[in-house]
């Protein structure tokens, strides 16, 4: 340790780069969420379940986008939990202009919104489209791909809670192997969702060569806000895939939402990275690596892997291999630490 640490370079180890705010940082260096003047794009009184990761992720993302757009932002929403819990007549939680059409068309509606704004000369107003994993990776996939391919000036944000939660926890193409859902019960020879299925939506987005693709997690607000801010600074089609645990669908304690999201990152199952024009340009390194067990064990959807006396090591190890593959693919662990 050297003594040459200039005062301004002294990090705030207490409050520094990980907590939401820091009384010692200048207003500009704090997160948007730390600000008393944040836009609260979704305000109180919404009907999300206790500990909802999506409610949190959406406010994180949209408040950051609002700051980046200087308040000139409109949002388009696919059908899903986020839509339902924010806008049941006669009350809405949204405090920004917001439009919901149907389940599968949010990216296309957003394209139209962007085009309409351009044609009306409102070029300063930016457009965000958002949906859950079902609305993104399944039913809205065609429209999303079309929006990407045309490179429309839309930031699409997917809040991934790995199943159709709004309809009662059915499998989507984002549901991980072995996860129990209403349509992949923990029964038979291959309990839960089967291995070898599912879409890697961020990679698919990258394959469109759009200017910006990123993954983010509600467990890392600074990273999430930086990515949204980055995306908002770019024109063209952009995609951010946010990991949002669902206490109801995952069978986890409501207070553990952020913890579980963090463990997903730290075990390697949910890699954090950014890509530009199809190439990965940065990755979020794992800070305290944990085995996938730590992540899986907190969720009842994986409970069948940890039955007393019959722990399903084979499947847990297969999931560990998925995590390890991510770690290798993205270089999530620095070589010297990787023991």
């Amino acid at each position: 340790m050297t003594d040459d640490t200039a005062l301004q370079r002294v990090k705030f180890y207490q409050t520094g780069t990980r907590t939401v705010g820091n009384r010692l940082l200048t207003e500009d260096d704090r997160t948007v969420q730390a600000s008393m003047g944040r836009s609260n794009a979704i305000t109180s009184g919404h009907r999300a379940c206790q500990g909802c990761g999506e409610a949190l992720g959406a406010r994180y993302a949209l408040d950051a986008a609002m700051r980046a757009a200087d308040g000139r932002l409109v949002a388009v929403n696919a059908t899903g939990c986020l839509e339902v819990f924010t806008t049941p007549f006669p009350e809405t939680s949204w405090q920004i202009p917001w439009l919901h059409s149907v389940f599968g068309n949010a990216p296309a509606v957003a394209t139209g919104v962007a085009a309409g704004l351009r044609m009306r000369g409102k070029t300063d107003v930016r457009v965000v489209a958002q949906g859950g994993d079902g609305g993104t990776t399944d039913i809205g996939f065609g429209c999303l791909s079309g929006m990407f391919e045309r490179n429309d000036d839309v930031l699409y944000i997917c809040y991934d809670n790995e199943a159709y939660m709004n309809t009662g926890v059915q499998r989507s193409s984002a549901t991980p192997p072995t996860a129990r859902t209403a349509t992949t019960p923990a029964l038979g020879d291959a309990p839960g969702n089967v291995f070898g299925t599912g879409k890697n939506m961020p990679r698919i987005a990258m394959a469109h060569n759009i200017p910006y693709v990123a993954t983010a997690s509600v467990s890392d607000l600074h990273d999430l806000e930086a990515k949204v801010t980055r995306a908002m600074g770019i024109c063209g089609a952009r995609y951010i895939h946010v990991f949002v645990p669902c206490p109801l669908g995952w069978g986890s304690a409501s207070e553990n939402t952020v913890l579980i999201a963090r463990l997903a990152v730290e075990c390697g199952l949910f890699p954090l990275f950014e890509a530009e024009h199809g190439d990965v340009v940065s990755v979020g390194k794992i800070r305290r690596r944990v085995p996938v067990d730590d992540y899986l064990r907190l969720q009842r959807r994986f409970a069948h892997l940890f039955r007393k006396g019959a722990e399903d090591r084979q499947r847990i190890e297969a999931i560990q291999r998925m995590a390890d593959a991510n770690i290798t693919r993205y270089g999530l662990v620095d070589a010297e630490d990787d023991q």
């Binding site: 409109v74 388009v76 439009l99 059409s101 149907v102 599968g104 068309n105 296309a108 509606v109 957003a110 394209t111 139209g112 919104v113 962007a114 085009a115 309409g116 704004l117 044609m119 009306r120 409102k122 065609g142 429209c143 079309g146």
Partner: peptide, 15 residues
């Protein structure tokens, strides 16, 4: 589906 959806978006901003 996208065609009308784009029109919906555009119309919703007054275009």
């Amino acid at each position: 589906f996208a065609a009308l959806s784009v029109a919906i978006g555009a119309s919703a901003v007054g275009a």
